[in-house]
Design a protein around this nucleic acid. Structure first.
Length: 318
DNA sequence: CCGGACTCCTGGTTGC
DNA sequence: TGCAACCAGGAGTCCG
């Protein structure tokens, strides 16, 4: 479900509530939500209780809250010895990694508030200013997860640290350090089609099925256009449209079709009203009026306009 | 390297 | 109304 804008809405909502807060209680209602935690449930609970949170971070669709004082001295020394001994210790050596999968939600609640039926993990925290709060991880399909993970320096900035589970994910296009030239060059090298590339989180992160279809529609690119045949100017346009659609969706609080995606207060975003292609099969293309078509692709739907988004044949080398 | 199939799951909607 | 089939915003692994 949630793509970059939705995850960023969650991150921004969590920030004032959990930064500097201390974990006072952890309840795991469904162990399957800890599938990506490397260790038993008790380990997850014991390391979290008493820990203090730093400000939540995000890359693409991954969200994490760096953990201070988590009471496991082993990892700090292990990290300090790798690669840059003089650097000693990261400000935080581990983090609570949250991935929302298709149906995950993070909800901030009063300590005594009723629980959603699909709540999988509950964190009780105490914030120095806001007092006691509850952070509920709700997830219908359990494709999402919570995990404690250690932090590693990023390859392109040794002062920036990232959970090991997220290290293989590319920077997202709203990250100031996203490398446009490297991305465009990779498109030219890859033997694949453009929608696959947009969904490949190791090339560019944060884009899912909705915003891939929207950006392709805006840039008038067919989803199966081979990346190597995409003219550079059009690839540049496409990347700009990716940024535009992600930015607009973020400004509107994300895309919600139902109560399945909500911010930390349980409220829906408004961007579904702004979609031009996704989910609009049979409706007229907002640009030319031709009905939007839905085709099956990668076990999901691709929505596009057959008139505006034609497959372009590669120009023969003269 | 690449693409396709399959896995992890629940629950709302659609169609007979 | 009942019930089965189908569908869903993600991502990892395996195999040819």
């Amino acid at each position: 479900m949630p793509e970059l804008p939705e995850v960023e809405v969650v991150r921004a909502g969590l920030e004032p509530a959990v930064t500097d807060a201390t974990v006072t209680g952890v309840e795991v209602l469904d162990e399957r939500s800890l599938r990506r935690h490397d260790g038993p449930v008790e380990d997850f609970i014991q390391r979290l209780i008493g820990a203090r949170f730093a400000a939540p971070q995000r890359r693409g669709k991954f969200l994490w809250i760096p953990v201070l004082d988590d009471g496991d001295p082993g990892r700090v020394s292990a990290l300090a010895s790798r690669r840059r001994p003089e650097m000693v210790v990261a400000p935080s050596s581990s983090a609570l990694v949250i991935h929302l999968g298709m149906s995950g939600q993070v909800l901030l609640r009063e300590r005594a508030a009723a629980r959603d039926r699909l709540t999988r993990v509950v964190l009780e925290v105490r914030h120095p200013e806001h007092g006691p709060l509850r952070v509920d991880f709700v997830d219908q399909r359990i494709f999402g997860s919570m995990a404690l993970d250690h932090l590693l320096p990023t390859v392109d900035d040794p002062d920036q640290w990232i959970p090991s589970q997220v290290a293989h994910i590319a920077r997202d296009p709203l990250d100031p350090r996203f490398d446009d030239r490297a991305f465009l060059a990779a498109l030219g090298r890859k033997q694949t089609t453009i929608k696959r590339a947009l969904l490949d989180q190791t090339l560019i992160s944060g884009i899912g099925n909705i915003y891939a279809d929207e950006a392709l529609w805006a840039a008038r690119v067919h989803y199966e256009q081979p990346t190597a045949t995409l003219r550079r100017a059009r690839a540049v346009t496409l990347l700009a449209e990716v940024r535009l659609v992600l930015g607009r969706a973020l400004a509107e609080g994300g895309t919600s079709f139902d109560a399945q995606y909500v911010n930390v207060n349980g409220a829906s975003g408004y961007f579904s009203h702004s979609l031009n292609a996704y989910g609009r099969q049979g409706e007229p293309c907002p640009r030319c009026g031709r009905p939007i078509v839905r085709e099956s692709f990668m076990n999901r739907g691709s929505h596009f306009c057959e008139l505006c988004q034609k497959l372009r044949v590669a120009r023969p080398l003269s």
